[in-house]
């Protein structure tokens, strides 16, 4: 050890390698935003190991194991299907022959997509606070924690999709969809980006304001009902017309419609002379486009906020 007084600050302020007290600058935040793929590659072992670990924690040792990610949406589906079709007597009229199950499948597709988002956001909001001990004791890039949540959600979504497609192939409930299935990777990727962006944003808020998780819970419940999961906006009659533009603001509306297009194919019903396009395969690209804008926006805002706040996490959790 030598005394530093002998050589007073001979190094220039910005010499490389120094870790200083200077807050993160916008330029650095953007640089890190761009460098995220490189970070993912660099830490791929950590990412893979922790995604595996998370899945194992959730499902190993349980009786239903890997079927659990399906149980929750299935349960929701059964309850709402019963309420809407049997109690409220809601149905899609004049369904083409062979697609009598359309409403059920319509609901189910919406629910698996929405559940993926809702589960991931609940977990994601708390992920930094929950991993407080890790953040305090180990130095690693903490943006990988929300990423982990998003990736776990992606894996469970893939599993739900597999089950859906197998059910289509081996049961007469619904005709297996065709080439539209090729959209799946793109949809999954954008959905994961959207979840990641929101998880970054919410987990940062949760660090500084512990009420966030409560807000998120309420918000998700509202979100579930304003998103057309159990109802078809075009068929709700005149009362909904003033709200239709608002429905189109909802990014998840575009997402579930895209999923429905991919998983169910075209669905047009005739009500007298009017044709209602319940699901359109033509519109998949447009829906995905709108949703992608939301996803990229969520990611940009979430990541920048996260990076600016990151250096204070260890002190606050």
């Amino acid at each position: 050890m030598t005394s530093p007084q002998s050589e007073p600050a001979s190094l220039p302020e910005e010499s490389p390698g120094w870790i200083t007290s200077r807050p993160t600058r916008m330029g650095e935040a953007l640089q890190r935003l761009v460098r995220l793929p490189a970070l993912i590659v660099e830490h791929r072992d950590l990412i893979i190991t922790s995604v595996k670990r998370d899945l194992e924690i959730r499902f190993s040792g349980t009786l239903l194991g890997w079927f659990w990610p399906l149980v929750h949406p299935l349960f929701l589906f059964v309850v709402y299907y019963f309420i809407f079709t049997k109690l409220l007597n809601f149905k899609i009229p004049n369904l083409p022959p062979g697609s009598e199950a359309a409403l059920g499948v319509y609901m189910f597709c919406g629910i698996i997509a929405f559940s993926a988002i809702s589960d991931a956001l609940t977990r994601g909001t708390n992920v930094i606070v929950d991993s407080g001990n890790l953040i305090k004791k180990l130095a690693f890039p903490s943006e990988l924690l929300p990423l982990n949540v998003a990736l776990v959600s992606m894996v469970t979504m893939i599993f739900a999709l597999l089950v859906f497609i197998l059910a289509c192939l081996f049961t007469p409930i619904w005709q297996a969809p065709g080439v539209e299935l090729l959209w799946i990777p793109a949809l999954l990727l954008v959905q994961t980006l959207f979840i990641y962006g929101l998880a970054l944003f919410l987990s940062t808020l949760q660090v500084f304001l512990r009420d966030t998780l409560q807000f998120v819970g309420i918000f998700l419940t509202v979100w579930m009902f304003v998103t057309p999961l159990f109802w078809v906006p075009e068929m709700m009659g005149e009362s909904i017309e003033p709200y239709l533009p608002l429905i189109h603001v909802n990014p998840v509306y575009h997402l579930v419609q895209a999923w429905r297009g991919v998983l169910m194919g075209e669905l047009v019903v005739m009500d007298g002379a009017t044709a209602y396009e319940v699901i359109s395969t033509q519109a998949i690209a447009a829906r995905l486009g709108v949703f992608s804008l939301w996803a990229v926006g969520a990611y940009l805002i979430g990541y920048v906020l996260f990076v600016f706040s990151q250096r204070r996490f260890a002190d606050e959790v």
Binding site: G17, I19, S21, I57, N133, K136, K137, L138, A139, R311
Partner: peptide, 28 residues
């Protein structure tokens, strides 16, 4: 160890760092 950021001053470390701030931090 890099788990918390300085409020003032600066430091630098040359090479790989392993820190044992708590044994078994992160064990599941």
């Amino acid at each position: 160890a890099g788990t918390t950021a300085p409020t003032c001053g600066r430091y630098r470390i040359d090479g790989r760092v392993a820190s044992l701030l708590e044994l078994g931090a992160g064990f599941h």
